[in-house]
């Protein structure tokens, strides 16, 4: 059987080598590309990214990749944004002024509203939990409730529709959205490719899911 082909979008940002390695470790045929034909022919697409929102969107727009990302999402195939890649799925971000995102999931990205004295960026391992008591996606399994994953961020997603919240996380008394979902479009604020065995299992679920039938 051929391994499923997962495209990792190459727009000059993100820890793409680690993501490709993690996908390969889970049996996928990982391809770093921005070629429209290759992306559309893939079984899944990962939007990577670390760094500033403005820089990320500027790179995507300079390469005219937003229409391709929308086409892939419209095709109904699984699209996973990681960290900044997740944030860019939303309508806009408040990081260093207001900047337009891809608007695949309505909402904004705002600074974590932590209390005085709480350290930012939020760096380290933390738990994820479904807001409604059960996972709305097979991306996570029951064991993930008790297995921390790795975060490094100062801003977080605020989807307009609570139904688009897939996971929440508490950091020093502040609850924020740590994963989002709208149909076949998913995003995680944390890094599955850097979250040990728990993270690899998330990528494994992403690679081997055939359909997305959630919200």
């Amino acid at each position: 059987m051929n391994a499923l082909r997962i495209a990792v979008l190459d727009y000059g940002l993100g820890n793409v080598r680690s993501i490709c390695n993690a996908l390969k470790a889970m049996g996928a045929d990982a391809l770093l590309t921005r070629h429209a034909g290759d992306v559309m022919a893939s079984d899944g697409l990962i939007l990577p990214g670390v760094g500033a929102f403005e820089t990320g969107m500027a790179n995507i727009n300079a390469l005219n990749l937003a229409p391709l990302i929308h086409d892939f999402a419209d095709a109904g195939k699984p699209l996973l944004g990681i960290c900044l890649g997740m944030q860019m799925l939303l309508s806009f971000s408040e990081e260093n002024g207001e900047h337009q995102g891809l608007d695949l999931i309505p909402g904004r990205v705002a600074r974590l509203p932590v209390s005085n004295g709480v350290r930012l960026p939020h760096v380290g391992w933390n738990r994820i939990a479904p807001p409604e008591g059960h996972w709305k996606s097979d991306l996570f399994d029951e064991a993930h409730r008790n297995e921390p994953v790795y975060f490094v961020h100062t801003y977080a997603a605020k989807p307009n529709d609570p139904a688009h919240i897939l996971a929440e996380t508490e950091y020093e008394g502040t609850v924020f959205t740590s994963a989002i979902i709208r149909g076949n479009v998913i995003g995680t604020q944390f890094h599955p490719e850097k979250s040990g065995e728990a993270g690899l299992r998330i990528l494994d679920h992403f690679i081997h899911q055939k359909s997305f039938d959630y919200v």
Binding site: S18, N21, A22, Y150, V152, H191, K194, G196, G199, L200
Partner: peptide, 11 residues
């Protein structure tokens, strides 16, 4: 580093 990130999936 290149070799490490092939089988070490933490930061």
């Amino acid at each position: 580093i290149e070799a490490a990130c092939r089988d070490v999936f933490i930061p």
